[in-house]
Write a protein that binds this DNA or RNA. Structure first.
Lengths: 236, 236
DNA sequence: CGTCACGTTGAGCGACCTCAAAATCCGTGG
DNA sequence: CCACGGATTTTGAGGTCGCTCAACGTGACG
C-alpha cells in the first residue's frame, strides 16, 4: 500500500494530492510552498476574486463549486466555467502577470487553497515540472472550451442543459433509493448565462426536460432516476 | 538600429523572429533547432496533419492561413480556429503527447515551419523559457476561445460574420484607392462551420451585410470601404 | 455537353426572444 | 406564527431569426 498522503507537504492531506500541480517538487521548495500556503473556506455566494483584480496567486478548488464569470460592458455576463474540486483557477493571470479577466465566486460552501504569487513563482522557477503541469491544466481548459464550442454548434440547448445537470449530479448528488437528488447550486439566470439563452427559456427547457421522465424539477430541487439508461441520447 | 535577424538561428530570417517561441535559447540548442527544422510550403487545400494523427512536432505558420477543423461522428465538422502568420499550431498534442484533435489544412498558399518533436523536446528541456512561451501561446488560445464563446452569446451572427471579414481583410486585403478587396479564402460552408449556422444562412447574412453598404460581395470577391467609420457598431 | 461542387433563393416551420404579468420562494420584522 | 417585500421563477402572447427541404443558377472540368 502506497501512502498517498504526505504530512510535510501542504497538499499532503488533500484528496487531490496525487494530481497536485505542486507535487513533486524539490524538498527545499516544500517549505516555500508551506510558507505561501493559505486554506480558505468560502460561503455560498462569497467572491474569491473580482474581474480586473491583480493576481494574488494560484488557486486550487479543494471542495465545493466555483463559478468563473465575465461581466460585459452592457451589464450582461457570461458564466465561462464551473470549477470543480481538484481544478486550478486563476492560472491565466498568474502565468501572464495580468489582472483577472473573470470573477470567481463560490456557488456553494467551498474550500480553496492558495499559493501566494511570490512563492508560486519561486517554486515554478526551481521546478520545471510544475510549469509542465500548469501547461497541462491550460490544455485541459482549451479542451473544455473546444467541447463547449462544439456542443453549442451541434447540440440542442435542451440536451446541453441536461448534460450540465448530469455533471452536477455526479459531484453534488445524493442517492436516495433509486433516485439521485440535489439542491441546484445555480440560479436560472446562471444557467442561462452558461448555455447562452434567456432565463425564461431555461424555465421552458426545464419543463421539456421534465417531460422526458428522467428528471423531476421543483425550483432548485432536482431529482433524477439513476442510471438514466442513455435514453436521452434519443432526444435531439 | 538593432539587428532583428540572426543568421545562425533557423527562425533568424522570419518576420516573426522577435516573437518566436524558439528564441532566445542557449547557443548549443540553436544547432539542435537547426537540425530538427523543416520549412514547408503548402498549396491551397493541402493538409498539414489530420485529426488523430500522432504529433510530429511543433508547427509555426510563417505565411498564409491555416484552418483547424474537428470532424464529428455525424459527419459534420466545426472550424475551431484560423491560424494566422506568427501563430503556433499543434502545441496541444505536442505538450500532451497525444494525437491531434483537429485537422490542419492550408486555406491559401502557406508556409509552415516545423521543429521535429524529438528536437523540440530536447530544446524545451534545456530551456525553461521556451516552455514559458509555449504556455503563453496556450493562454492566447484560451483567450481566443473565451472571446468566441462570449461573442456567440452576445453578438448577432451578422455582426460576427462581419468581424471575421474585417479580420481577414486586415491580413489578406489589398488596397485599391478607397477600397480594400480580397479573394475570400473560405467557402460558405467553412464560414458556416465557423459561426455555427447553415450555409444557406451565411448566404442570407451576406445579403444583409451588403445592404449596410460597407461590404460588396460577389461570390468570393469581397470589397470593403476602408475605414468603415465604425458604423457597424450601430447594427445589432 | 454532362457532371459536380458551390452558391443563391424561396416557403414553411420551430425555437428562442421580448415584453408583460402572475406565481412562488425566502428572509425579516412585527 | 404570520405578514410583508424583494428576488426569483413561471407562464403567456406575439415577433424574429435560423433551420429544413427543395429548386435553381453558375462555373470548372472531364
Amino acid at each position: 500500500m502506497l501512502d498517498q498522503s504526505n504530512r510535510s507537504h501542504p497538499c499532503g492531506n488533500c484528496a487531490f494530492y496525487k494530481d497536485s500541480i505542486w507535487q513533486p517538487v524539490s524538498s527545499s521548495c516544500v517549505s516555500v510552498l508551506s510558507r505561501g500556503f493559505l486554506r480558505r473556506d468560502l460561503t455560498a455566494g462569497q467572491p474569491l476574486y473580482y474581474q480586473d483584480d491583480d493576481n494574488r496567486g494560484v488557486f486550487c478548488v479543494s471542495k465545493g463549486l466555483i463559478a468563473l464569470r465575465t461581466q460585459h460592458h452592457d451589464g450582461t455576463s457570461t458564466l465561462m466555467r464551473l470549477a470543480y474540486p481538484g481544478e486550478i483557477i486563476g492560472f491565466r493571470s498568474f502565468l501572464e502577470s495580468r489582472p483577472h479577466r473573470t470573477e470567481a465566486r463560490a456557488l456553494v460552501g467551498s474550500r480553496v487553497c492558495t499559493v501566494a504569487q511570490r512563492d508560486a513563482r519561486h517554486v515554478v522557477q526551481g521546478n520545471p515540472s510544475v510549469l509542465t503541469r500548469l501547461a497541462s491544466r491550460c490544455i485541459k481548459e482549451i479542451d473544455r472550451n473546444h467541447e463547449r464550442i462544439i456542443a453549442a454548434a451541434t447540440t440542442s440547448n435542451k440536451q446541453r442543459l441536461s448534460d450540465i445537470l448530469l455533471r452536477l449530479m455526479e459531484t453534488h448528488g445524493e442517492r436516495t433509493g433509486q433516485f439521485l437528488h440535489m439542491q441546484l447550486p445555480l440560479s436560472r439566470s446562471d444557467l442561462a448565462d452558461l448555455i447562452g439563452v434567456q432565463t425564461e427559456t431555461v424555465s421552458r427547457l426545464f419543463t421539456r426536460i421534465q417531460a422526458d421522465g428522467i428528471f423531476r424539477v421543483s425550483g432548485r430541487e432536482i431529482q433524477m432516476l439513476s442510471v438514466p439508461s442513455n435514453k436521452q441520447s434519443a432526444n435531439m
